[in-house]
């Protein structure tokens, strides 16, 4: 850390309006502030419907927030002129979850990449263009590149498609890639190879990442030095360096999902103790604006939790939003209990 701030979110809220006469608001993201510096990796973790994808799209400038500002090197992106916006947009790239849907099935690999290379690199000849495309393919691990040039997306496996999706994002030399569940549709045996590619892009090209996932284990493999931001029903409830947050989690929700995460080791998996919540399911009334979003399920919640939204403040090197953060019982990792 310590690099220049690329993107800064200030008190960003996004709601979607439903209905025509009697409008109701569905809050997807509530009052989120976040800084992304050069070369940073931020992993946004949360369950489905917690607003993590919406937040990713706000960072990428694809959705305009209802309240709050998004700053790109200190400039509000929604107040930029058309020209400036056009310059900024390609510098943040998005890789989607489903590589089957994000690539045009009627175009070959060459046809997918060549127009973008033409636009950004302005090669002087066809030969140079082909060479550029081949270089990019080899860089993302689609080797030998000659073999792939004339293939259609349906000839490629899930892992190869995702590599191609990354190849495409690299051409405008982005500063930041928002990767939204990039490995959840990829075969297990190949997941790590796509995560490895992302590591390489971060280390060699200095591209910052926002990695959106529901799976802390893959996030941990992608970057143990990353920052983990945990979302629950639209809010970030805990934020800190990955190994510290996993090693000594504070927020009760984080503790609950860590204790519930399956572990690929039968001895640990069978004897670890899961933290019990008051309610097994997310409450139906999707987002309340009053109180702590986790209070109906939290085993430690008191009256204040239903009344006031806890502030997001520094504690023990993390940032956490919990009223009782200094009164919570000491945390022992469930897998430690299992192995001792």
């Amino acid at each position: 850390m310590g690099g220049e701030v690329i993107v800064e979110l200030k008190n960003v809220t996004k709601y979607f309006e439903k209905g025509f006469i009697r409008k109701t608001r569905n809050y997807a993201v509530i009052d989120v502030s976040l800084e992304i510096r050069e070369r940073d990796i931020i992993t946004l973790i949360g369950e489905s419907g917690c607003g993590k994808t919406t937040l990713g799209r706000i960072v990428a400038g694809l959705i305009k927030p209802s309240k709050g500002t998004v700053l790109w090197f200190g400039k509000d992106i929604w107040k930029m002129g058309k020209k400036e916006f056009k310059k900024y947009r390609p510098l943040i790239q998005v890789v989607h979850q489903d590589p089957y849907a994000s690539l045009n099935p009627t175009r070959t690999v060459y046809q997918i990449l060549a127009p973008i290379v033409k636009k950004y690199y302005k090669p002087s000849s066809k030969k140079e263009l082909v060479e550029e495309v081949k270089d990019i393919l080899s860089y993302v691990g689609l080797t030998p590149p000659e073999y792939f040039l004339n293939k259609y997306p349906h000839h490629l496996s899930g892992g190869m498609k995702q590599r191609l999706a990354f190849a495409r994002t690299l051409i405008p030399k982005p500063k930041l890639i928002v990767a939204d569940e990039p490995v959840s549709m990829i075969d297990m045996s190949l997941r790590l190879s796509v995560l490895g590619l992302m590591k390489k892009l971060n280390e060699e090209l200095g591209i910052a990442f926002i990695y959106i996932s529901h799976d802390i284990a893959t996030a941990r493999y992608f970057a143990d030095k990353a920052i983990l931001a945990l979302m629950y029903l639209g809010r970030i409830v805990e934020l800190g360096p990955m190994d510290e947050v996993i090693g000594s989690p504070l927020h009760p929700y984080l503790r609950a999902i860590l204790s519930a995460s399956p572990i690929p080791d039968p001895k640990i998996a069978r004897y670890k103790r899961k933290m019990e919540l008051k309610s097994l399911d997310v409450p139906r009334e999707i987002v309340q604006l009053k109180g702590c979003p986790f209070s109906p399920r939290c085993p430690y919640s008191g009256d204040i939790c239903f009344e006031q939204t806890p502030q997001f403040k520094e504690y023990d090197g993390h940032k956490v939003a919990c009223h009782f953060v200094d009164k919570l019982p000491k945390w022992t990792p469930p897998w430690q209990v299992a192995t001792s």
């Binding site: 297990m188 190949l190 190879s193 893959t218 860590l258 690929p264």
Partner: peptide, 15 residues
């Protein structure tokens, strides 16, 4: 090839 929350990750690798 399966990432885990526990233990060393340096021996984890794709097939």
């Amino acid at each position: 090839a399966i990432p885990s929350l526990v233990g060393d990750l340096s021996d984890r690798k794709p097939i």
